[in-house]
Design a protein around this nucleic acid. Structure first.
Lengths: 224, 224
DNA sequence: TCATGTGAAACGCTTCACAGCT
DNA sequence: AGCTGTGAAGCGTTTCACATGA
């Protein structure tokens, strides 16, 4: 393993999810501007694209090394590749979708559409409905969730969970037993996060509640 | 306006989105346990349900008053109503969906299904596709986005944006012009957040990247 | 002059410890 | 004994100011 990669991985250990989220968005911006033929981007420009300050961008990137050229900015292409490594994208994780209902289908096609730009592809789909099992979306066959973890089933690193709320706890348990270590959960279910497993939740109702609360807040400030 | 409500609104002013997000989840838990006939819940129990510590729960709730009974815990029903007020749920915001594609449909039915438990209902849908305009989902008619802001169109407080990425900037601008003050964005687009407007983003690709990065991190820790 | 990289300060969130009530 | 409410401490993140280099 190269000395550089080793340093990246050591430093990665104490980086927050906030920072990682921003790194992911920097990468996405860089992919966009690279396509447009831009060679250098300053921390200010990069920050503006995602609503972050210039010092924030510099701090984030400086964790892993000195990629910028003073007086010029950051080399778009080079920094993009660097972020691919930092984010672990070069390991090309296998992403699986659990739940082929309305939401599952929507997510599948969103990621499918983004693939050209974002290089994240769902390459396995699981459901428990016999009517769906055996069908395929864009060439990806829908398999029986019961197969999960069996030797015949395709291996998954990251699972996107879009099953009904009531089934989520069981599904998550099964995923973890099957060796899946990363889970993106779209259900209301609260799932314990065992050591060595990464779970992130997208809570649709909470998102709307937070917005409603902020609006409530603004209303009362104005009227006082 | 009552003195109590006034105090809630003053304190709301300097509360973080983290706290608001937890308040929303407490409310959701309380709705669940109220249905099961539980009368009191301790900060410890409430926290466990969402993966928060007991002191965290107490701090969060103490911002707005003293709702608990020492030695007993928090009265489920009462605290639930209180959180409804704090979150501004009693104002019953009008929620609109922009974009009636795969993702829009999925979100519509998710919220529709949750309505019984969560009381968030999408009551207006907009799209630009002539084939979709005029159709209805569960009795909610799909209208032309061009109508947005016109006097004939139903008023929206909070918009859920699920249009293609390329159209998002224009749609968001139009929403703000039409007086919408809360936006939940599911596209990759980066949109400036003008004073007085609340925007929250759900970035599907970033979520997967963060998980991938954490897995990368764990891998290298183990192997060293 | 322009923009990076970075230690130090500022800020905000979470945890802790314990007083106080039932 | 059990659990809440809360000031203070601890910890982590962001911002700032400036030294450094092109």
């Amino acid at each position: 393993m190269g000395a550089h990669l080793e340093r990246v991985q050591r430093r990665l250990a104490d980086v927050s999810d906030f920072t990682i989220g921003r790194l992911a968005r920097y990468r996405s911006v860089l992919a966009d501007v690279e396509e447009q033929g831009v060679a250098y981007l300053s921390s200010k420009e990069l920050g503006q694209r995602i609503g972050a300050t210039a010092p924030q961008v510099r701090k984030d990137l400086s964790i892993f090394g000195s990629f910028g050229k003073k007086g010029k900015g950051y080399p778009v292409r080079e920094l993009g590749r660097e972020l691919d490594t930092i984010l672990g994208r070069d390991l090309s994780w296998k992403v699986g979708l659990i739940g082929a209902g309305n939401l599952g289908r929507a997510l599948f096609y969103r990621y499918y559409k983004d693939f050209h730009k974002e290089s994240i592809r769902i390459d396995a789909i699981y459901d428990k409905d016999p009517d769906k099992i055996g069908k395929a979306w864009r060439g990806v066959t829908i398999r029986d969730v019961a197969e999960l973890g069996s030797s015949t089933a395709p291996k998954i690193d990251i699972a996107i969970v879009a099953v009904p709320d009531s089934e989520a706890p069981g599904v998550v348990k099964r995923l973890i037993d099957a060796g899946v270590r990363g889970i993106l959960n779209f259900t209301r279910a609260e799932t314990p996060e065992p050591e060595g497993v990464v779970i992130r939740d997208v809570r649709l109702v909470v998102e709307v509640d937070v917005i409603g609360c902020r609006l409530n807040m603004m209303r009362s400030q104005k009227s006082s």
